[in-house]
């Protein structure tokens, strides 16, 4: 464990808790893409199946349980409890165009052709594009609530911090996972224009409005 990975995990946890808190407090999931949350729940389920087979540490297991539980709790809030506030008309990104290519790529480009490894690879590829429906929704509505932009900032920062973690681990531990690194770069790059808007607007107290 290193400071980059720890702050990355905490940033990830913060993002997930901000989202749950926003929906619960405002009793509304307006501006939130349910489709992205479906993809995240798929990512965690596919990636954390090893939760019961190989124990890494208490921290690792506890975080995996929290991420899976929070992902499904968010889906419940969006599609059951507050479904009247779900923005069905704007949340229209075709996620099958993300799921199929990621599944195909995971079958072709992986470290080892076993069930767990292919599912892990699928989750890595899927996570790198899982935010697209959410960014698409924000671009369609042209704005995002401030709390939603904080959620996106924390979520985008987590994988950026993981990139630093991989640089650190490469030099100090000789750890190198090209699949995770390339997908992590793609994932972080997708947030760049959002990061720019967040830094130039939200930090200065203005609402996140995309230039029309």
């Amino acid at each position: 464990m290193n400071i980059f990975r720890l702050t990355g995990d905490l940033s990830h946890l913060l993002a997930i808790l901000i989202l749950l808190w926003k929906i619960w407090k405002t009793r509304s999931c307006s501006g939130i893409s349910g489709r992205s949350q479906i993809l995240f729940a798929t990512v965690y389920t596919a990636r954390y199946l090893d939760l019961f087979t190989n124990f890494v540490s208490v921290y690792n297991s506890v975080m995996k349980i929290i991420f899976i539980a929070a992902a499904f709790a968010t889906l419940y809030l969006i599609y059951v409890k507050f479904k009247a506030t779900y923005d069905r008309n704007h949340d229209t990104f075709r996620i099958e165009f993300l799921l199929a290519p990621c599944a195909l790529l995971a079958l072709i480009l992986n470290h080892e052709f076993t069930i767990l490894e292919v599912l892990w690879t699928f989750s890595i590829y899927l996570e790198s594009v899982a935010i697209l429906p959410q960014l698409f929704l924000v671009s369609k509505t042209g704005e995002a609530e401030t709390i939603t932009s904080h959620y996106l900032f924390a979520l985008g920062s987590y994988r950026a911090l993981y990139l630093l973690n991989w640089i650190y681990r490469y030099y100090f531990e000789g750890f190198f996972d090209l699949i995770a690194i390339v997908a992590g770069i793609v994932q972080t790059v997708l947030y760049c224009d959002f990061f720019y808007l967040y830094i130039t607007r939200v930090i200065k107290g203005r609402a996140l409005k995309l230039p029309a």
């Binding site: 190989n54 991420f67 470290h111 996972d177």
Partner: peptide, 10 residues
């Protein structure tokens, strides 16, 4: 075959 990468990250 590549060295097995231990999956210790989230």
């Amino acid at each position: 075959p590549e060295t097995k990468i231990i999956k210790d990250e989230l």
